[in-house]
Deep mutational scan, measured.
Amino acid sequence: MTGIVKWFNADKGFGFITPDDGSKDVFVHFSAIQNDGYKSLDEGQKVSFTIESGAKGPAAGNVTSL
């Protein structure tokens, strides 16, 4: 699925993605970002991701920028 990064705190390594389908915002951890180098996201960035079952509920996985 796709969405827009609502916010991401690079110091803490997590944030939230707002899915394009209008569903509830999804937690994203830096370890789910699939790019080389520094793993961070920018507010407003368009991303593709999967929904994984995290310890505290749904979380984004396999996050790639579009």
Rank of each mutant, 00 (worst) to 15 (best):
M1N: 08
T2H: 07
T2K: 08
T2E: 05
G3R: 00
I4N: 06
I4S: 08
I4L: 08
V5C: 05
V5A: 02
W7I: 04
F8W: 14
F8P: 00
F8Q: 01
F8T: 02
N9G: 04
D11M: 14
D11W: 15
D11V: 15
D11Y: 15
K12N: 05
K12V: 08
K12M: 12
K12F: 09
F14Y: 14
G15M: 02
G15Q: 00
F16L: 05
F16N: 02
F16K: 04
I17P: 00
I17C: 01
I17D: 00
I17V: 05
I17N: 00
I17F: 01
P19G: 03
P19K: 03
D20W: 06
D20K: 05
D20S: 10
D20Q: 06
D21N: 11
G22S: 06
S23Y: 06
K24L: 10
K24D: 12
K24I: 11
K24P: 14
D25W: 04
D25C: 07
V26S: 01
F27L: 04
V28P: 00
V28R: 00
V28A: 03
H29D: 04
H29M: 04
F30A: 09
F30Q: 07
F30V: 10
S31V: 04
A32V: 10
Q34I: 14
Q34V: 14
N35Q: 14
N35P: 07
N35I: 14
D36M: 13
D36F: 12
D36Q: 13
D36K: 12
K39T: 08
K39D: 05
S40G: 11
L41A: 02
L41H: 01
D42S: 15
D42R: 15
E43Y: 13
E43H: 14
G44T: 03
K46T: 08
K46L: 11
K46H: 13
V47S: 01
V47W: 01
V47D: 00
S48L: 12
S48P: 00
S48Y: 13
F49P: 00
T50F: 10
T50V: 11
T50W: 09
I51R: 09
I51S: 04
I51F: 08
E52Y: 15
E52N: 11
E52M: 14
S53V: 14
S53Y: 15
S53F: 15
G54E: 10
G54F: 10
G54V: 06
A55N: 11
K56L: 12
G57W: 09
P58T: 12
A59F: 15
A60C: 05
A60Y: 02
G61Q: 14
N62W: 11
N62D: 06
V63S: 01
V63C: 03
V63L: 05
V63Q: 01
S65K: 15
L66H: 09
L66E: 07
L66T: 09
